[in-house]
């Protein structure tokens, strides 16, 4: 165990349904500071939904999610929960970066403008400082010379790296990755995974929903296998990926590898 035992994310019996369809059935999970957790599982297993619940893009129907010491989306006084004002939820989200499968860069802004928009408009950082920071972040993801290009002029892999830089510009304490390489051409996956690997090495706490078993094996501290809204198996990557205990995990790994 190399984790410094400060919990960053705590999910306590998290439940979520769409109508009668129960997508998350009591998920319990802890991610410690500096830890990289990879969420694996077949599509429809609820892993992306769970990720979106962490920063309250989706509300939950039961349980609690804490990021740091903060209860996401609500304020609890005694046994009573009060819904937070959208401003306060926005505030909570500032310290949680998210990277999407479809990149979701702002197409009307250049790469640099994408990165500085939130620091200036949301965090209130001076424009000069935001630009300096953005330039160093773009350099970090290997796109220094693409700062003034629009997203439509960039390849998928480049767009995703700008999206990572954009999330990092808010100096998050936690990064969520929702299948960051699933929409990419195979030859572009490597560059994005390299950036994520560097980020993990720098000590960032990361939750990654992915199908890249190789990446999970190499970078993850913990691998969690989900199916049909429950955590089937979790542990260090060697245990889960090489000696899975559960039949469902075995079946999934066989189908992916």
């Amino acid at each position: 165990m190399n984790a410094k035992l400060t919990p960053m994310v705590r999910a306590l019996s998290v439940k979520k349904s769409y109508g009668s369809n129960e997508v998350l059935k009591s998920i319990n999970l802890t991610v410690h500071q500096g830890e990289v957790l990879c969420l694996l599982g077949p599509s429809g297993s609820g892993k992306s939904t769970f990720l979106r619940c962490i920063n309250h893009l989706e509300g939950i129907d039961g349980g609690r999610i804490y990021v740091g010491d903060e209860l996401m989306g609500y304020r609890q006084v005694g046994d009573v929960l009060y819904e937070l004002h959208s401003k306060d939820i926005a505030k909570q989200r500032q310290s949680i970066g998210m990277v999407f499968q479809r990149f979701n860069l702002f197409p009307h802004l250049t790469a640099l403008e994408n990165v500085i928009e939130a620091p200036i408009g949301v965090a209130g950082i001076a424009r000069q400082d935001a630009i300096a920071k953005a330039e160093s972040l773009l350099a970090k993801v290997g796109l220094k010379d693409k700062a003034n290009e629009y997203p439509s002029q960039l390849s998928g892999g480049q767009q995703q790296r700008v999206a990572i830089a954009r999330a990092l510009a808010m100096e998050p304490k936690l990064m969520l990755f929702d299948e960051p390489t699933s929409a990419l051409d195979p030859e572009l996956v490597g560059d994005v995974l390299d950036v994520m690997r560097d980020l993990a090495k720098s000590g960032m706490t990361m939750i990654v929903v992915t199908h890249e078993i190789g990446f999970a094996r190499e970078v993850a501290d913990t691998v969690v296998f989900m199916d049909q809204g429950v955590v089937v198996e979790s542990g260090n990557p060697k245990e889960v990926l090489d000696n899975p205990r559960e039949a469902r995990t075995k079946a999934f790994l066989n189908s992916v590898l």
């Binding site: 893009l57 989200r93 500032q94 999407f100 979701n104 702002f106 949301v122 999206a163």
Partner: peptide, 27 residues
């Protein structure tokens, strides 16, 4: 405007009004 745009804006901590003014309406 694709709903992913508002989601990305939300995830960066932008308020609803800010998202409308700076992200959605320009597109």
């Amino acid at each position: 405007v694709d709903s992913g745009q508002s989601e990305a804006a939300k995830s960066l901590g932008m308020s609803g009004w800010y998202t409308m003014r700076r992200i959605v309406l320009p597109q």
